[in-house]
Write a protein that binds this DNA or RNA. Sequence first.
RNA 1: GUGGUUGUAGCUCAGUCGGUUAGAGCGCUGGAUUGUGGUUCCAGAGGUCGUGGGUUCGAUUCCCAUCAUCCACCCCA
Length: 454
Amino acid sequence: MAAQKPSVPKGTRDFLPSEMVKRNFIFDTIKEVFKRFGYLPIETPSMENLSTLLGKYGEEGDKLLFKILNSGDYLSKVKTSLIGVESGKLASEISEKGLRYDLTVPFARFVVQHLNEITFPFKRYQIQPVWRADRPQKGRYREFYQCDVDVIGSNSMLNEVELVQIIDQVFQKLNINAVIKINNRKILLGIAETINAKDKFIEFTIALDKLDKIGSDGVRSELIKSGFSESQIEDVFSVINVIDQNNKQKISFLKRMLIDSEIGLKGVEEVETILNYFETLSLNTELELDLTLARGLNYYTGAIFEVQSKDVAIGSLCGGGRYDDLTGVFGLKDVSGVGISFGADRIYDVMEQLDVFPKEIVASTKVMFVNFGEKEEKYCLPLLQKLRENGINSEIYPESVKMKKQMTYANNKNIPFVILVGENEMGKGVLNVKDMQSGDQSEMKFEKLLQKLS
RNA sequence: GUGGUUGUAGCUCAGUCGGUUAGAGCGCUGGAUUGUGGUUCCAGAGGUCGUGGGUUCGAUUCCCAUCAUCCACCCCA
């Protein structure tokens, strides 16, 4: 049989030990911050019922869902004729489960399902992979990890403030220079209302969102394509024109512009409340009111966030916002939640590119015993046990092969100390300890080694 | 879904204006050094030149298709 070429599906990856150490550093850092703010962990299954997922992420999102083929003779239950059927329609008949697309919607399902077992406001964090049938490219994978924090059951802007603080802490600890962009869906709605374009809200936000990518001319032609009138476009550009002003100036501009829009003013007030908290709170990361920030996920209803790296162009590293009615479809009305999601894989890419991973996290095994043979093994094993009892990561080479090979192994694994115990050392009751970095070698008693390593 | 890039050794890549034996560096294995890695020297293994078809006396090279890959758009973490 011809050997098959080993490969993983498009957009998925293996992680080597050296990569896992760094990934875990990111996860541990994020988790630590989440816990510091009082969030508790949960997990949900990789797959959800398709009915849970469909329709929550917009038309585009539905297309990007990975669907799982029903088990058994799935075609026998298909009622419609296979000929000329729209594939989307067929899919719903042969697939009733899908891989989760994000962690927020499963969380909403989770909250409603476990209503009696949780206490509100419910603060949870969740770090798990999600899957999207997107075309992979730079910073985009088909399987990637999200690190979500959400509070559900509280309308207070204090939650938004806390999330900004969490973002600030995480990126500070990870040594990434970032900018937090904040906006509010109510403001966008208010603008659309004010310029009489409520019916074209989606087109309006999409065009606005693209400003930094396609420039103002690009936005203008997009708006024309969507059927906006000259005067409407002028109004949109009055919003774009305040882009370089500071947060306070933007707010006073909005208050004037949205004077007749109740919802718009509500949005401005929310943003102002959040920003006001930071007049007395220290923040390392820049917090910018970005009126062109829109975000595609259409369940957001209030504040929206996005975090970008200042040094690497890779799309957003973190995003989120407030959703007033995510649990509504699952039967729980009038419960508001707010949350954000860190993209661990993109954070990894940025940190790798910037070379900001701490050097000391690569160490794993501290000590390796060279294997000289059966007699020596029996002599070393109890010592090894004692090292481990003392919390020192240690191992013995499992075979008594050529020393060169054992040393190469230790070297490749970056093990800082190698211990040689042969006939001589056993007779003298000492250990020959080699420092792999300096190459120095010295004989010492076991107790001294313990002291040296702990 | 749309447009483009690239597929040659385990990895990173060179090369062949179509010709007999396809190269380098790194890595790997062995030796110099039978109790010493990372440096040095010597030797060796490893390729159906992505896959299928076409043109040709002859294709890794030219043409077509296909798959994979990466990048951009769309959208997003």
